[in-house]
């Protein structure tokens, strides 16, 4: 590491923000990809990879991605839930790499849920 100045400290902090958002919390949006056996069979891994690539390319640090078990809706897998802080979660179904990319741009980045792929808004009515 080169010699630092006072200003560099803040820059280093910014650079590592994404990872510390994971550890400390304080994220803006969370995407949960459902990874039950059926989800994986239906292509949830590809959805996950596409989403992670998209986030990496956009260089943003306030969106986290997690997985969860089977959502009980095997016929509509792959499923993912997008939660933007202070907005109702939106569940998307029948996903593929292209769709999740669109959801990333429209919903996560621009804040407009993509209704054509949405299964339901809000989690309460789901199970």
């Amino acid at each position: 590491m080169p010699r630092l100045t006072v200003g560099d400290l803040q820059k280093i902090k910014e650079k590592h923000k994404a990872e510390f958002t994971l550890r400390e919390g304080g994220y803006r949006a969370k995407v949960t990809v459902h990874m039950g056996t059926c989800g994986i069979a239906a292509g949830a891994r590809e959805v996950m990879t596409a989403l992670l690539d998209e986030i990496a390319n956009a260089g943003i640090d306030d969106v986290i991605v997690t997985t969860s078990g089977c959502a009980g809706l095997c016929a509509r897998e792959p499923l993912a839930t997008v939660e933007i802080i202070n907005a109702p979660p939106v569940k998307y179904c029948d996903l593929n790499a292209e769709k999740i990319k669109e959801i990333f741009r429209e919903h996560i980045m621009a804040g407009n849920p993509v209704e054509k792929y949405a299964l339901v808004v809000g989690c309460e009515t789901m199970y």
Partner: peptide
């Protein structure tokens, strides 16, 4: 750049 989604703090 790769997006890391989980940190395992071992």
């Amino acid at each position: 750049m790769e997006k890391v989604r989980t940190n395992l703090m071992l």
